[in-house]
């Protein structure tokens, strides 16, 4: 689904990531952890073609990212739900319109009843008409998650989805991600919150990728 082969990524001054080889199997649940600045966001950006590897090969849905045109990248992103740490909403549109944005940009729209159901699932039905700046951190993260999953993507990449929220809200978001995984979605969650990972392990078979010394390694069972 998403495969890295000897991938390296370097900014001007040396490698941030190097020699990364891994394969995200369909239906898997991965946590990506490591100190801040280690390259968690860079890893995710490589996985949705925001960045191109400086060496090696990244394959998205069996296609080498370097062969993708800009329109191919756009189409690929419709199969990948992305939850950004800072959410990235269009602040002049309502929460409901923001959630439906992946449909809007492909000249489609969702059935209003289905959209309502999705809003209810993330607990934001009462805020459908609110503007994003009026939302709390937890509400924003859940709205971002709803937007990421609205087009029924195969993969969900979440970058610190619990970064700005309290523990209770973190658990709620984790529960949503676990539910999605049980529906067969491939999930990658970048986080530095080890408690969250421990909590998840009780609910789902999650694997942990740790970034250390520019490498991405599969961590052991113990944390």
């Amino acid at each position: 689904m998403i495969a890295f082969e000897n991938v390296a990524y370097s900014y001007g001054g040396g490698d941030l990531l190097s020699d990364v080889t891994l394969r995200l199997a369909p239906g898997s649940f991965h946590f990506l952890t490591g100190p801040s600045g280690a390259g968690k966001s860079t890893f995710l950006k490589l996985a949705y073609a925001e960045l191109l590897p400086t060496a090696g090969r990244v394959t998205l849905f069996d296609r080498d990212v370097t062969t993708l045109s800009r329109d191919d990248v756009a189409r690929t992103r419709r199969r990948i739900g992305i939850v950004h740490q800072d959410c990235k909403f269009l602040d002049h549109l309502s929460v409901a319109a923001n959630m439906a944005l992946p449909f809007t940009v492909s000249d489609r729209e969702s059935d209003p009843q289905d959209l309502d159901e999705l809003l209810a699932w993330v607990g934001l039905r009462h805020l459908a008409d609110a503007l994003p700046p009026q939302l709390s951190g937890g509400e924003r993260q859940r709205a971002a998650l709803a937007r990421a999953v609205i087009v029924d993507p195969d993969v969900i990449l979440a970058d610190e989805p619990t970064g700005n929220v309290d523990w209770e809200m973190s658990l709620r978001i984790l529960t949503l991600l676990v539910e999605l995984n049980k529906m067969g979605k491939t999930i990658v969650v970048a986080t530095h919150d080890l408690n969250l990972i421990r909590q998840a392990k009780a609910q789902v078979q999650a694997r942990v990728l740790r970034i250390a010394k520019h490498r991405v390694q599969l961590a052991g069972a113990d944390l």
């Binding site: 319109a97 809007t104 000249d107 489609r108 969702s110 289905d114 159901e117 999705l118 087009v151 029924d152």
Partner: peptide, 21 residues
């Protein structure tokens, strides 16, 4: 939870100002 079904955009969605005024 069920994923929303897609249908062709209605005029309202099509005219949605994705770029702020």
């Amino acid at each position: 939870m069920r994923f929303p079904r897609a249908k062709p955009a209605s005029p309202a969605t099509r005219a949605l100002q994705v770029v702020p005024p």
